[in-house]
Amino acid sequence: MRNKSDKLNIAMLGQKRIPSREGGIEIVVEELSTRMVQTGHSVTCYNRLGHLISGKEFDGDSPEEYKGIKLREVFTIQRRGFAAVTSSLSGAIHAAAGRYDVVHFHAEGSCVMLWLPRLLGKRCIVTVHGLDWQRAKWKGFARRYIKFGEKMAVKYADEIIVLSESARRYFWNTYGRKTVFIPNGVNRPAVRAAERIKEVYGLDKDSYILFLGRLVPEKGIVCLIEAFRNVHTDKKLVIAGGSSDTAEFVQHLKTLAKGDKRILFTGFVQGRILEELYSNAYVYCLPSELEGMSLSLLEAMSYGNCCLVSDIAECTEVVEDKALVFKKADISDLRQKLQYVCSHGETVRKLKDQASDYICRKYNWDDVTRRTLELYQKQMK
């Protein structure tokens, strides 16, 4: 039996790569891994090869170590629908052959080969970041493949972590499988003045409504654009984020926005530009129709933003009464709420004043890491 203080050798897979802000999973893996390394554990992250949604301009060297985390690149076929499959399969094989105590799978699709490290004596933990097979971009074989990964997780994982109460109910009602609720965390950021965004995009403080995330159908961006086009305001709508195997959809969004000079697409952003966009938004809007647990929403609130979100449980459980809510996929209701915030600055200021302290108290990465390590240690007894 292991002592609870023993240091663990941990493998992480299912993320695109770290360091990266290409998606919520990448942020989660980095936040957990850096803290685990700081407490003396050994962590290896299996990264995909090739450039990803951030685009070639963000490609750089591939270090073997980052903040004490060991980085290993795995075989990846750079084609739509194949990158995630091939990298997760090869990552699982590498992890099975490695001398790891715990293999932590992120996302359902990565779990297809979970049985192999489990068969070879590794403890296997899964974090379900969302019911990925429900996402609009996955159809046919891809959707069946992800659903199969979900079933493999249910059958073989030692523990399954979920990010929302609705996901916990789903796994119990569908499979009779108990899961552990451990939400994501957030860091309290430094608020930045509008300098680079003024220079690059002509944006001043409180001059825009912000959407920030992957440009995929389930994020509700079509609803947001159509609603905003009928809002009477001089404020801009800034849509920040890159595509994720969704180039045609991104072009569709730009076609919808054509003719409205208030709508601005920035593409993928990170670093100082990202920080300034969060820091200076008038309102942050998340119109998602499907979520796991949005790190962008947590970050937006941590910067002290007034948030307007759809009424799906994954959003309302996070914001409670500290944000405004509209009916999912209801263009008319979203338009009315957008018009309301543009006309009621006092409500916006009140919600801004509450947001940061509330969210940083409720969701903390140190607490998330502690609870995750306790789950690992439980399996080593």
Score class of each variant (00 low, 15 high):
residue 168 R to F: 01
residue 134 Q to V: 03
residue 168 R to Y: 02
residue 135 R to K: 14
residue 149 G to V: 11
residue 135 R to L: 07
residue 155 K to Q: 13
residue 123 R to H: 13
residue 148 F to Y: 13
residue 143 R to T: 09
residue 158 D to E: 12
residue 132 D to E: 15
residue 140 G to H: 02
residue 170 Y to T: 13
residue 127 T to N: 07
residue 148 F to N: 04
residue 165 E to Q: 13
residue 123 R to S: 14
residue 164 S to F: 06
residue 159 E to F: 04
residue 144 R to V: 06
residue 137 K to R: 15
residue 167 A to C: 06
residue 135 R to T: 11
residue 137 K to G: 03
residue 139 K to F: 11
residue 144 R to I: 08
residue 145 Y to W: 14
residue 132 D to L: 07
residue 150 E to L: 00
residue 156 Y to S: 06
residue 156 Y to V: 10
residue 151 K to L: 11
residue 158 D to A: 10
residue 168 R to K: 14
residue 128 V to N: 12
residue 165 E to I: 04
residue 147 K to M: 10
residue 163 L to V: 15
residue 162 V to R: 03
residue 131 L to R: 01
residue 158 D to Y: 02
residue 150 E to A: 02
residue 160 I to L: 01
residue 170 Y to E: 03
residue 170 Y to G: 05
residue 156 Y to M: 04
residue 140 G to S: 10
residue 159 E to M: 05
residue 164 S to C: 02
residue 153 A to W: 11
residue 160 I to V: 04
residue 133 W to E: 15
residue 123 R to P: 03
residue 133 W to M: 13
residue 128 V to L: 10
residue 133 W to Q: 14
residue 167 A to M: 15
residue 162 V to P: 04
residue 130 G to K: 03
residue 132 D to I: 06
residue 151 K to W: 14
residue 134 Q to K: 15
residue 132 D to A: 07
residue 129 H to K: 00
residue 124 C to W: 06
residue 149 G to P: 04
residue 134 Q to F: 08
residue 141 F to W: 02
residue 148 F to R: 11
residue 125 I to N: 04
residue 145 Y to D: 02
residue 138 W to L: 04
residue 138 W to P: 06
residue 145 Y to N: 03
residue 167 A to Y: 11
residue 129 H to E: 00
residue 160 I to A: 00
residue 162 V to A: 01
residue 157 A to H: 01
residue 147 K to I: 08
residue 135 R to M: 05
residue 170 Y to Q: 05
residue 125 I to D: 09
residue 144 R to A: 11
residue 143 R to E: 10
residue 131 L to C: 01
residue 161 I to C: 01
residue 128 V to M: 12
residue 144 R to Y: 07
residue 136 A to K: 14
residue 142 A to W: 01
residue 169 R to L: 12
residue 129 H to Y: 01
residue 137 K to P: 08
residue 141 F to P: 07
residue 154 V to P: 10
residue 166 S to Q: 14
residue 152 M to H: 06
